[in-house]
Design a protein around this nucleic acid. Structure first.
Ligand SMILES: NC(=O)c1ccc[n+]([C@@H]2O[C@H](COP(=O)([O-])OP(=O)(O)OC[C@H]3O[C@@H](n4cnc5c(N)ncnc54)[C@H](O)[C@@H]3O)[C@@H](O)[C@H]2O)c1
Ligand SMILES: NC(=O)c1ccc[n+]([C@@H]2O[C@H](COP(=O)([O-])OP(=O)(O)OC[C@H]3O[C@@H](n4cnc5c(N)ncnc54)[C@H](O)[C@@H]3O)[C@@H](O)[C@H]2O)c1
Lengths: 230, 230
DNA sequence: AGAGGCTTGTGACCGCATTCTCAAACTCTA
DNA sequence: TAGAGTTTGAGAATGCGGTCACAAGCCTCT
């Protein structure tokens, strides 16, 4: 019994395919070629075929893939056939936005609790939920079978929040705070860092500007105008 | 004058180093070894040295790197010696959170305008700014020299928002909407997709659960015996 | 000044991901 | 049933990024 190891890069693209496939069923389509899916997902078709081949041979040569079946297979692989309970730690600006976000439940992620260390916030209602005390995190996680922790505290508190999540038994953490946090090996950690994204954009923007003024100035030959890959 | 091509992966880590270095100056440090910086940034030291070597030879053997100088060099490379004006397109839940986010300006990113297509929102004040009409985007971008567009509209409107940003002359776009959007080659596009992150976590969580029950039960459960071809 | 210790910078290597390519497998038509 | 057209699945080739390993260079101590 060989356990196929799906490459990380592939795992990151599966949700993208899933979204495109869902849009296709909405449009009444039933099958799609790797080329069609590639266009919709913004990648190339060889990548689509290789990615999907990690899940099994679910396509039909000369025809393409059955959309509904593929949705099922990808959902199963991603663990989306069950619902996952999440807790948002730190309900400030961002935490509020996340708590009110309906796109969450669309894929079976349920915000089961909101916790904050600021006791003045405890009790405040946000949508259907009330903010609870950070100190009760462990109990909340156990009682509601929370499996994903979303950290939206200030950077200084992020490691603490993560530590508490880990000791409560949470094995998946999504961190929005601009801080490097460490977790045990058996805990998955992903981060979303707005500031880093902006700085990356800034790098390429600045580079474009530099190339532009170089080209305008004509100091160097045409060979300086190298293609930039964003 | 050689044209150094800095690898994308390196560019993505530079902001991380920058943040760690800033924390170090706050703590009164003046030099740091690649090992020290690696620990702070959560990577390994060889990677740090290679990354930094793309910028030039700014270290001193036997000693390490001068923190202040390194901050300057990385900032320069990332284009952070100037301020960048941003416009937030779509001021709903998320747009509000972003507009109120102070961490923005910390690295020289200034929210110069908020625009929304919903005229009932136009005029509403958010922090120091008032929401303006999406139709005025082009004028706003020109007048305030906006160079970065942040798309926080619903998914269906994201491509439209991006198109308008592009035709207004914006060359860098950060997209929060869960939609594949396409832009011309000379425009940089990055995306932040919460839902994808959660699904990636879900994949690993599910796999941990599968491995666990495999280990416990020593018998193949239905979910563990999955994707083998019939 | 020379020895010893530390740390950088980089060439070499390795592994993963992407892309290329094409035989195999399917559908459709006549 | 044969032949043309389409599309998958996967082996091979390529390229990029990460890691290793170590010579080169700097500092301190004696
Ligand atoms: N607001 C944004 O748009 C935005 C964007 C990107 C990143 N971020 C990051 O997300 C995080 C949250 O941002 P924000 O704007 O919501 O900040 P915020 O200050 O509005 O909210 C932080 C919340 O966390 C709570 N908190 C503090 N320490 C805590 C702890 N130990 N345990 C639990 N809760 C705790 C605070 O009481 C507060 O309610 C920050 O790290 C920020 O850098 C925010
Ligand atoms: N809220 C969250 O925490 C969150 C998290 C992740 C991703 N997102 C994504 O971010 C986007 C915004 O989310 P939200 O919760 O703020 O939604 P929202 O509905 O609260 O806000 C969307 C805003 O965009 C405006 N808008 C619609 N069409 C527009 C157009 N063509 N041009 C300009 N503005 C337009 C609407 O008037 C509205 O104010 C969505 O795509 C959502 O999926 C939101």
């Amino acid at each position: 019994m060989r356990e196929r190891a799906i490459p990380e890069a592939t795992v990151a693209r599966l949700p993208l395919y899933l979204r495109s496939l869902a849009e296709m069923t909405d449009r009444g389509m039933h099958t799609v070629s790797s080329e069609g899916l590639a266009d919709a997902a913004g990648v190339n078709s060889a990548k689509v075929r290789k990615d999907l081949s990690y899940l099994g041979s679910y396509g039909t040569r000369g025809v393409g893939y059955d959309i509904e079946y593929l949705i099922y297979q990808i959902s199963r692989e991603l663990g989306l056939t069950q619902d996952w309970n999440c807790v948002i730690v730190g309900v400030g600006n961002l935490g509020h936005a996340l708590a009110n976000y309906r796109g969450f439940s669309a894929r079976g992620f349920r915000v089961a609790a909101l916790v904050d260390a600021d006791e003045r916030k405890v009790g405040e209602r946000v949508g259907e939920l009330a903010i609870e005390d950070f100190e009760d995190l462990e109990r909340i996680v156990k009682e509601r079978q929370v499996s994903i922790g979303i950290v939206a505290t200030p950077a200084v508190a992020a490691q603490d929040a993560a530590d508490r999540l880990v000791s409560a038994g949470v094995k998946s953490i999504l961190n929005f705070a601009p801080a490097v946090i460490t977790v045990p090996d058996d805990v998955s950690l992903r981060k979303v860092d707005l500031s880093i994204e902006l700085q990356i954009l800034s790098f390429y923007e600045q580079r474009k500007a530099a190339l532009e003024s170089l080209r305008r100035g004509k100091r160097l030959t045409a060979s300086a105008a190298k293609s930039t890959r964003p």
